[in-house]
Deep mutational scan, measured.
Amino acid sequence: MTEYKLVVVGAGGVGKSALTIQLIQNHFVDEYDPTIEDSYRKQVVIDGETCLLDILDTAGQEEYSAMRDQYMRTGEGFLCVFAINNTKSFEDIHHYREQIKRVKDSEDVPMVLVGNKCDLPSRTVDTKQAQDLARSYGIPFIETSAKTRQGVDDAFYTLVREIRKHKEKMSKDGKKKKKKSKTKCVIM
């Protein structure tokens, strides 16, 4: 069974824990209790493949930012979460993405942009803004509501699919490099 290491990042209060708990335990946590770091595991079937999701729910508070490099190193894919009623959390996505790329030393890291709290009427981040940002990053965008469960499975499952595509691409690139290195030079 394939294991996928997913990391949920975003500013404090955007609903990272609520999304994760909704996926794992099928219930909505409405009281806000700032996370330092929590880890969850769940076995699911995605596109006919049974897999184990190892999900790291991270601290959004700035005082825990020193811990970010460590979990970013171990993560295979990242859910970059903002709240649709919090423009600052949307603007912060850029910083999370840049930090992930720096730590992973790669421009090509599996990510999904997630606009959470889409059940709320007080939207300050337009869907088109988020779609445009995701398009500019070359990553999928999904709106979710941890409260109603809308888009929750889709967000995590899409990230797994992005990781699969990335692994497939990397193995193809690896095979191309191996083929090239088999060419021999004969000096007579």
Rank of each mutant, 00 (worst) to 15 (best):
E98L: 03
Q61E: 08
E63M: 03
S65M: 11
L79I: 11
Q129C: 14
K128C: 08
D108Y: 05
Q22G: 04
L113V: 12
E37T: 01
P121Y: 07
D132I: 05
Y32A: 02
S122L: 08
V9Y: 04
Y4F: 11
D54F: 11
S136Q: 12
D119I: 07
E49R: 08
K5T: 03
D153F: 05
M188L: 05
E76D: 15
K184L: 02
G12R: 03
E3F: 06
L120P: 13
S181D: 10
E31V: 14
D38G: 00
L113N: 03
G13H: 15
L53C: 13
G12N: 11
D30C: 13
H95A: 15
A59D: 01
A59Q: 01
E3L: 10
N85D: 05
E3N: 15
R135P: 04
E31H: 14
M170W: 15
T158N: 06
I139H: 03
V160F: 10
E98Q: 12
D30R: 13
D105T: 03
L52S: 13
M72V: 03
F156H: 12
D126H: 08
R102D: 06
A134T: 07
V29K: 05
M72E: 10
R102T: 08
K42F: 04
K117C: 09
G48I: 05
G13T: 10
V29I: 08
G151V: 10
E3D: 12
T127E: 06
R97V: 15
E31K: 15
K42V: 05
N26Q: 10
Y137D: 15
K117V: 14
T2R: 13
A155K: 02
N116M: 15
K147E: 06
Y71W: 14
E162N: 12
Q70Y: 08
C80Q: 07
D54V: 04
K167R: 09
Y32F: 01
D57Q: 00
R123D: 12
R102S: 08
T50F: 08
K176T: 07
Q22W: 08
V160Q: 14
G13P: 14
I55Q: 01
K167T: 11
I84G: 15
A18Q: 15
G60Y: 00
T127M: 07
K184V: 14
M67E: 03
F82P: 01
S65Y: 09
Q43K: 13
V81G: 05
D54G: 09
V14M: 10
Y32M: 01
L133G: 06
I139A: 05
C51S: 08
Y32R: 01
D132E: 05
D47M: 11
V152P: 10
A83D: 15
I139E: 15
D173S: 08
Y157F: 08
Y32I: 01
V112H: 01
C51Y: 11
E31Y: 13
K175G: 13
G15Q: 03
K165I: 08
Q61P: 03
K5L: 01
G48T: 10
S136K: 05
D119R: 14
T20E: 00
T124Q: 09
E162P: 15
F141L: 12
G115K: 03
K104R: 15
Q131W: 08
H94R: 14
I46G: 11
S39N: 07
M111S: 03
K42A: 05
L133Q: 07
K101G: 10
T35H: 00
I84P: 15
Q25D: 07
M188I: 05
L159C: 05
T74W: 13
K180G: 09
A18V: 07
V152Q: 14
T35K: 00
V81P: 06
K178S: 06
S39W: 02
D38Q: 00
K88W: 05
C118F: 10
Q25L: 04
F78M: 10
N116D: 13
M67Y: 05
V9L: 13
R135F: 04
V152N: 08
D153A: 08
K177P: 05
M67P: 04
T127W: 05
E62T: 07
G174S: 06
Y71F: 06
K182I: 13
K172N: 10
V160P: 02
Y40S: 00
E162I: 07
Q99S: 05
G151F: 12
G48C: 06
V114W: 00
S89A: 15
Q131M: 08
V186E: 15
L6G: 04
V45D: 14
K88R: 11
L120W: 09
K177M: 09
I163S: 04
R102G: 07
T158I: 09
Y64K: 02
D33I: 01
I187Y: 13
C118N: 08
E76T: 11
V160Y: 12
A155P: 06
R97S: 06
F82K: 01
C80F: 15
G15C: 02
F28E: 01
V29P: 15
V7M: 05
R164P: 06
S65C: 05
T35S: 01
D47G: 11
Q129I: 04
D173A: 15
S39T: 01
A83Y: 02
G60K: 00
C118A: 11
G115E: 10
K101A: 14
G13K: 07
I100F: 08
Q43C: 05
G138C: 15
D54W: 13
A66D: 12
I100G: 02
V44W: 11
